[in-house]
Structure formats: structure tokens, C-alpha cells
Design a protein around this nucleic acid. Structure first.
Ligand code: ATP
Length: 820
DNA sequence: ATAAACCCTATTTTT
DNA sequence: TAGGGTTTAT
């Protein structure tokens, strides 16, 4: 029997339903607070468009703002749509950047790009800046680069910038040089990708006529160019004009540093006279105390704001905790103690129900150490940081040179690492030689090196030349490896191994490291492991073949190029086999939820970050829309962190850094006026224990009536009603099975962490169709050592440890594999 | 001209 | 704690 579309909508409240089923040809903007089901509305709407409005999936674009969020989206849609046999992989889902890249690969000719244009990542643009303005110091370059990016994100060209009255001539000229460097090297930086995408949409609208609907998640994160792109996509054909759905929350705008523009909501209203605006007010995620504290946090924002009155569906009165510590080490120890103590309460939660959310990545170190000591399994969401590790970076640079003879940036970074006697001066000579020849004929790096080695090119010292020889021969042999291999993967792996062997990369990096820090390196920070992980990433990579007929390119990208490009646009975060505590930045946690959330480091200078105070000062010249209010962004960041928690929110601060015990730091001003918070949680206190059990299971309140009836029918009345007895009952992260993925997203999907906020009642949902089918809850005698006797204990509800939803595939966390 | 040894510093967040 | 920048040794 085919499932019914109505089944998908059965749990939605009225406002949600209105938004989901609104007329697709009228632009709609859903503005709502955290946990109100925005994302759920968005996914339901996609289902509505496909199943009810019969729009083919391939004509629907869904954008997100991080690679990770794109994965989330695919996961949710797959879970939702695969019962309907909808080919989810045909949906056009991704970040604005990835969508633009896909279009530009196909239509490069229409906007004056060469077919083999490359992408300049942050490391590359840094190199470009160093090359363009070598006399500036590194800090000034970074600042200039920041300005340039801000300008580009608003679509301001160097000339347009010069036309602004209070501009800086210096910035203008650096901007010009920077852009022309990129252009002459066939490179696009991240901002260019959007700009070219916009140009394509505007000048060659025909290419995009296939678009029938565009949906945007986290709309508050759009910058000007992205917004224009959205408008352009929405305007595609007269027949399907303005078919745009966006969801967002201005209070959760935390990407100002990436030029996210809060004015987007207003701009959209201005642009579409008939804009349909919907609000959602029921929060299905958090307790009332968490929502109260969160609302109080937003009170710190200086910019104007519409206050929210979110209604919580969870009535358990469990307090928010704020705990102060002498040093950050003490704080980390406290966190691990709390987790251990809570964990000692039987059946209360799984490790995967816990997240530690940090303002800055580097704060994870101490926390990791303490968790390790207590043998608490954890998982560090490393995201982009993995690709920036020295070994990983170097290996990728080598592979880039192997793949493209024109990649001078990667060449410059690898030629003398490890040292080959090719120092700054020799490199500079080589580069200027390359600059002058590359325009005329198609001389690549290796041709140039051959010239130098054979004496027909520029003259360099003999030590240098032998270094070049070594390098060249490595690169050539790698190319040979790839060309003779039976399949592309084997070729790349052979080249990989050759590079690792010949250069001894891992050892080089390790020596560099240990030279500085006198102590022994812990074995969790061995470069070998990172290199091994990179190799696994390559091995598991499946190039996404273009599904949409219109977007097939004449020449296919090589396996290696696909892989190198995928790093920037697709996330490869993987599922954890065991249940583990999550450590993540707040930014990477956006849109997710956990029953228990720790937010440490609420210390002046750490959170709010010290830099936020500096940002406002130095505006000697006009950069339109700089981050005027960096502090406000810190406020919102804290808001996002707090609202990730479903039940237990544990805030903490430290007074001094262990490393510098002289300076004492104030408690974060963000904590002022948040009302009463408990200094600690006494897990031995019976009252508290009772509250905890209640809190952790009360999510059953959000069960729909139908589900509640089902529960009651099977004897779960006590569970829905009262609380304590039910502790046992909620493996809050029952593993889910999701199948039916294919093609483009298969690989990505398979890498997921457990605790997604995909509807959290999987064990019930799955069985919803037949009240008499598999829901067998056997009564069981509970654990005799607990005062809180389990009422039921079925494998269905409490899967034994170690059972996972896994696909059976080997997996190694994308984070550095760390020993527990 | 290169490599090694040194000091300094300031530490966001992501495409 | 790693990277940038500077100085010194080869
Ligand atoms: N109508 C509903 N009934 C029960 N649960 C719901 C309903 N709508 C949403 N939820 C649940 O509420 C939680 C939050 O939903 P969702 O992630 O869609 O919110 P959101 O508004 O996108 O949050 P955020 O702004 O933090 O990203 C999820 O666990 C979701 O399953």
C-alpha cells in the first residue's frame, strides 16, 4: 500500500500546515524562532510540491548555508520521501556555492570562464594576497582580504568601490590586483562563485528555465549576492514566477562575518508585493526555562528586535545551570564529572544525547583531555578544520599539482616542503618566469621546470636544480601512476602512496611539530592518522555524476578533480558507530538539537570573543555594511547555543586560563539578567533525580494524539502521563534506518552523526501504520538496583548497546580518529 | 641563498 | 600552539 501524503502532515500544527500548503506561486517567508519546526515545514513543503503539485524533483532547488546542513536536508528529505518512491537524489540540494558551481561547470562558456576554472580556497587567497601585496604585514593583508570579501559579497566591483566617496585608495588597488591575479590564473574565490552564478542567472536566464521552485533554509544567513541570486532564480520563467519559499530567524543570524545581511527579510518584502508571511510560535524542542533564558539572552542585543513569545510544550521545571570555575581546566573537569554522574543514572540518556558547544574551535582541547581521562567517548565535529591540517593540506597540494600543471599556488606551497633547497628567492624567480610565459603559450609548471633543469630556462644554483629534479620526477611518476592505473581510484591511491613515501610527509610534519613543543606528542595527534584518514576519504569518494540531463558537461571532470572540488562544496562528516558525546562549534551546531547541552567558556573575551570588541573600532574608511555590531552577533551566537538544548542546559565560565593564572577574567556579560540559574545540579538529590527523569522523557508530550492513543493502547499510559516510571523508555536516539539513497548523495548521507533532530520519535513513527503490527512492548522486570523501575524494556525501545543503524560499512570518524 | 634557530603573538565562526 | 617574521649559521 502506498503511503498517503496526509500522513506526512498529520503532526503539523495549523500555522505549519498553512505554510506547507500555501500557493506555490506566491512567494512565502516563514519567520519563526528556534525549534518551531521551520525545517520541518521546509521539508514538508518540498513533499507537498512534489506529491501534490506534481513538480518534478529535478526542478526544485533547496539551499542551505553549510555543507553539513545540506547533508541534514538530504537525510530528512530522504526519510520523508523515499516511502513515496520519490527520487530524492534528483532534487537540487546544496549550498548556494555548490549549486552555482554545478551550473558554472556546465555553462562556463556563457560567462566567460575557461572550462577548467579552479576554485581558490582560503589558503589560496591568502597566498594570492601575499603575492599581490608582499609589503603589507600578515595582519594587514588579512584585514584587506576581509574588506575585499565584504565588498564582493555585496556585488561591489573595484570600480564601484572607487566611486564611493570615503573609500581607501589602497584597498581599491589591492582589490584590483587581487582580482586580476585570480582572473589571470583562472581561479574563482568563494565570492566569485556566487557572482558568476548571479551573472549567469541574469544574462543567460534560459539556462535556468528548468527551475520551478526555490526553497531557502536559514534565510537570515543570506548575503546580498545570494539574495539577488534567489530573486533571479525565482524570476526564471514568466509562467512560474516568484516561486520562492524561505524560512529563517533573524535572531539566529550568526554569519555576519560572511556578510550575511539581516536586511534580507525586508528586501524580500520590498521585492515581492504579495509576499506571504507566516509566523510559528510553538516550540517543540525545549523546556520553558530554556526558552525564558534564551529570550533573556536576546535582551542584550542592541539592534532593534521583535520580541518573541514562544510557547513550550514541555512543562517540566528543570532549571538552567550556570556554574563558575577557577580555571578552564577545572571547568572541563566539571563537565566530564557532570556527564559521568548523569550517566550513572540508569537509562537516563545515551552519550549521543549530549553536546558540548563551543564558541571557538581551539577551546575543545581541554575538554577533550578531560573526557579522555574519564573514558567518556566523544566525537569532535571537525568540519573544514580537517582539511586545513598541515599534512592533509600538503598532500592535497601535491595532488593538485599532479592534477593540474597550472596550479602555481599548490606548486609554491609544495616545492619546498619538505625542504629541497628551493628557497624564497629561487621560488620567486620561478614564479615570475611562469607569469611571463603562461599567457603566451600553454606552458605549465612542469614544462618550466624541465626548461630550468635542461638549462634552457632561467639559471639557478646546482643544489636548487637537483631539488627541482627530485620534485619534477615525483610529480611525473604520480601522473604516470594515474594514467596506467586500471581505474581512477587506484591511480590516485598509487600517487598518494608514492607522495607519502617519497616525501615522508607525516614524519616531516611531526618533526616540525615536536621541534617546537618540547613535550612528547600524544598519539592522538599523529599526522600519520590524519593522512590515513585522508586516504580513506579518497577511497570512499564516489564522484557525483550529473543527474540532470541539462547539466551534463561535454567533458567529464577527472576523479581526482572531482574529489578535490568536492572538499569545498560537500561535507563528508561521518556517522559514529558508537554513541558518543558531540563536541562542536556553535556555528556547526546550528539547526541541530540535543537533550543535554553544555556551553562552556562563558567568560569575558572568550564568549563574547575579544575580537568582537575590536571589530567596531577601526573604521577609518568606508566599507559599506561592515560588521557594525559584532557584539550583537555574539549575543545571537549564545542564543543559538542555548536553544539547541531540549531539556538540560549547562552553562559555565572560568575565571582564568590555566596557562596564564595571573590575569583574572570576568564572567561573560552575556550572562547578566538571565534570571535564576542553579549553580549546580545535585544528582544525588531525589527531587532532582525525579525531575531529570521526567524531563528526559517528557518529549512524549509532543506525540500526536494518534500516537498517544497508540501508546496508551499498548499500556504506555503511565508513560505519557507521569514521567518517572518511564525513564527506561526513551532511548532518545533510537537508531534509524534510512534507505533508498542513490547517486549523488549516497556517500554524503552515509556519513551522519546519530543525534539529528529529524523527528525524534522514530520508533513510534515507523510503526504508525498498523497499531497491531510490530509494536510489541513486553513487560519486563526492571533493573533491581534502581529505584526507578523500568516499566517496559523492549528491544524496540531500548536497543542494546552497540547496535547501530550502520550500513555495515567500515567507518572512521572524519574527525581525527581519537582513542578513547 | 638556504636552513635552522629564534622570538613573538594572538588565538572566531564557514563557503 | 602554530604560524609569521627576524636573526644567525652554514
Ligand atoms: N508539529 C510538530 N509536532 C511535534 N514535533 C514537531 C513539530 N514540528 C516540529 N517538531 C519537532 O521540533 C523540533 C525542532 O524542529 P525543527 O528543527 O524543524 O525546528 P527549526 O525551527 O528548524 O529550529 P531551528 O531554528 O533551531 O533550526 C524537531 O525535533 C521537530 O521534529
Amino acid at each position: 500500500m502506498k503511503p498517503n501524503l496526509l500522513d506526512l502532515f498529520i503532526g503539523l500544527n495549523e500555522a505549519q500546515l498553512t505554510a506547507v500548503t500555501a500557493d506555490p506561486s506566491r512567494p512565502i517567508q516563514i519567520v519563526a524562532g528556534p525549534g518551531t519546526g521551520k525545517t520541518r515545514v521546509l521539508t514538508s513543503r518540498v513533499a507537498f510540491l512534489i506529491l501534490e503539485k506534481k513538480i518534478p524533483p529535478s526542478k526544485i532547488i533547496v539551499t542551505t548555508f553549510t555543507k553539513k546542513a545540506a547533508n541534514e536536508m538530504v537525510e530528512r528529505l530522504t526519510a520523508m520521501l523515499s516511502p513515496f518512491e520519490v527520487p530524492v537524489s534528483e532534487l537540487f540540494i546544496g549550498t548556494f556555492h555548490s549549486i552555482c558551481i554545478r551550473l558554472l561547470r556546465r555553462y562556463h562558456g556563457k560567462c566567460g570562464l575557461r572550462p577548467d576554472f579552479g576554485v581558490a580556497d582560503e589558503t589560496d587567497t591568502k597566498s594570492v594576497m601575499k603575492h599581490t601585496c608582499p609589503d603589507l604585514g600578515e595582519k594587514e593583508r588579512a584585514k584587506a582580504r576581509g574588506y575585499i570579501s565584504k565588498l564582493k559579497a555585496q556585488g561591489i566591483t573595484p570600480d564601484a568601490y572607487r566611486a564611493i566617496p570615503r573609500h581607501s585608495a589602497e584597498i581599491a588597488s589591492v582589490y584590483t590586483m587581487y582580482d586580476s591575479y585570480l582572473e589571470s590564473h583562472g581561479l574563482l574565490d568563494f565570492d566569485d562563485i556566487l557572482l558568476y552564478g548571479l551573472r549567469l542567472a541574469r544574462d543567460n536566464g534560459k539556462c535556468l528555465d528548468f527551475v520551478r521552485h526555490v526553497l531557502v533554509d536559514e534565510f537570515q544567513d543570506t548575503n546580498k549576492v545570494q539574495l539577488d541570486l534567489l530573486f533571479a532564480l525565482g524570476d526564471r520563467s514568466t509562467k512560474f514566477q516568484h516561486n520562492v519559499t524561505v524560512v529563517g530567524d533573524p535572531d539566529q543570524s550568526i554569519y555576519g562575518f560572511r556578510s550575511a545581511d539581516p536586511a534580507s527579510f525586508r528586501s524580500m518584502a520590498k521585492r515581492y508585493e504579495n509576499l506571504h508571511q507566516v509566523n510559528l510560535n510553538t516550540n517543540y524542542r525545549s523546556t520553558a526555562s530554556i526558552l525564558n533564558v534564551s529570550e533573556a539572552i536576546m535582551g542584550h542585543q542592541t539592534a532593534k528586535r521583535t520580541s518573541k513569545s514562544l510557547r513550550s510544550i514541555c512543562s517540566v521545571k528543570i532549571p538552567v545551570v550556570h556554574s563558575k570555575h577557577r580555571t578552564n581546566n577545572d571547568e572541563a573537569r566539571w563537565i566530564s564529572d557532570q556527564i559521568s554522574m548523569l550517566k550513572a543514572m540508569p537509562h537516563l540518556f545515551e552519550y549521543s544525547d549530549v553536546a558540548i558547544l563551543l564558541r571557538s574551535r581551539f577551546l575543545s582541547r581541554v575538554v577533550e583531555q578531560e573526557l579522555m581521562k574519564k573514558k567518556i567517548p566523544y566525537h569532535l565535529v571537525q568540519g573544514q578544520a580537517f582539511w586545513d591540517l598541515k599534512v592533509v593540506r600538503s598532500m592535497l597540494d601535491y595532488l593538485r599539482v599532479v592534477s593540474s600543471d597550472l596550479d602555481v599556488l599548490a606548486f609554491s606551497r609544495t616545492i619546498n616542503f619538505p625542504a629541497r633547497k628551493v628557497g624564497a628567492v629561487s621560488l620567486e624567480k620561478l614564479l615570475s618566469q611562469f607569469q611571463s610565459s603562461v599567457g603566451f603559450n600553454n606552458v605549465g609548471v612542469s614544462d618550466m621546470l624541465i626548461g630550468v633543469i635542461e638549462g634552457t630556462g632561467i639559471k639557478l644554483g646546482s643544489g636548487v636544480v637537483s631539488g627541482l629534479k627530485e620534485y619534477l620526477s615525483l610529480i611525473q611518476q604520480c601522473r604516470e601512476d594515474i594514467s596506467v592505473a586500471e581505474n581512477p581510484l587506484d591511480g590516485v591511491l598509487a600517487a598518494f602512496d608514492r607522495i607519502a613515501r617519497t616525501t615522508d610527509l607525516a614524519n616531516c610534519v611531526r618533526e616540525e611539530k615536536s621541534k617546537r613543543s618540547k613535550r612528547e606528542l600524544r598519539d592522538d595527534e599523529l599526522p600519520e592518522n590524519d593522512l590515513e584518514e585522508l586516504r580513506n576519504q579518497i577511497r570512499e569518494f564516489e564522484p557525483a555524476e550529473e543527474i540532470l540531463e541539462d547539466l551534463k558537461t561535454e567533458t567529464e571532470q577527472s576523479f581526482l578533480d572531482s574529489f578535490l572540488e568536492s572538499i569545498h562544496f560537500y561535507s563528508a562528516e561521518k556517522e559514529e558507530a558508537q554513541t558518543k558525546v558531540t563536541i562542536s562549534t556553535i556555528h556547526a551546531a546550528k539547526g541541530l538539537e540535543w537533550p543535554i547541552v553544555f556551553v562552556p567558556g562563558l567568560t569575558m573575551g572568550v564568549f563574547p570573543n575579544y575580537n568582537a570588541f575590536k571589530a567596531d573600532e577601526d573604521e577609518e574608511f568606508t566599507v559599506p555594511k561592515g560588521d557594525e555590531n559584532a557584539i550583537d552577533e555574539e549575543v545571537r551566537c549564545f542564543y543559538v547555543a542555548a536553544t539547541r538544548s531540549q531539556r538540560l542546559l549547562m552553562l559555565s565560565s572560568f575565571e582564568r586560563r590555566a596557562i596564564d593564572s595571573e590575569t583574572s577574567l570576568e564572567v561573560s556579560p552575556l550572562l547578566k539578567g538571565l534570571g535564576k540559574m542553579e549553580p549546580k545540579l545535585d544528582t544525588l538529590d531525589l527531587g532532582i533525580r525525579k525531575l531529570l527523569y521526567e524531563a528526559m522523557t517528557k518529549k512524549f508530550q509532543s506525540v500526536s494524539d494518534e500516537e498517544r492513543q497508540l501508546l496508551e493502547a499498548i499500556g504506555g499510559a503511565a508513560i505519557v502521563g507521569s514521567g518517572i516510571t518511564t525513564a527506561l523508555y526513551a532511548p532518545m536516539n533510537a537508531p534509524r534506518e534510512v534507505s533508498g539513497l542513490s547517486g549523488r548523495f549516497k556517500r554524503k548521507f552515509e556519513g551522519q552523526e546519530g543525534q539529528r533532530n529529524l523527528n525524534r520519535l522514530p520508533h513510534i513513527n515507523m510503526e504508525r501504520r498498523g497499531a497491531n503490527s510490530e509494536v510489541s512492548i513486553s513487560s519486563a522486570t526492571g533493573h533491581s538496583n534502581s529505584p526507578l523501575q523500568p516499566l517496559v524494556n523492549s528491544p524496540k525501545f531500548a536497543p542494546p548497546r552497540g547496535v547501530t543503524s550502520g550500513t555495515g560499512k567500515k567507518r572512521l570518524g572524519m574527525g581525527r580518529p581519537r582513542m578513547m
